[in-house]
Amino acid sequence: MEALQGISWGIIAPILVIQLILLIIALIDLSKINQTNGPKWLWAIIVILGSIWGPVLYFVIGRKQS
């Protein structure tokens, strides 16, 4: 991982912050919503493990519009 030391963290930080915000919003929404398309625990795993795409998939397909 020595090679990665040249990378400035100030530049990378916003990427991680965005991922974190998306993850948190998706999880908050998941805990509040009544029903999802498919089991809730599965969506929790997808949201947590799916990096940027997990929350997006959840918002596009997982959310059931009541």
Partner: peptide
């Protein structure tokens, strides 16, 4: 339904990653 939040975030995400990954491509 949070569209007002996640859609801008996705566009900003790609707005950052595109220059950053191209710049750090040798290191990566």
């Amino acid at each position: 339904n949070y569209k007002i939040l996640w859609i801008p975030l996705i566009f900003v995400f790609f707005g950052i990653t595109e220059p950053v990954t191209n710049h750090y491509l040798p290191q990566i």
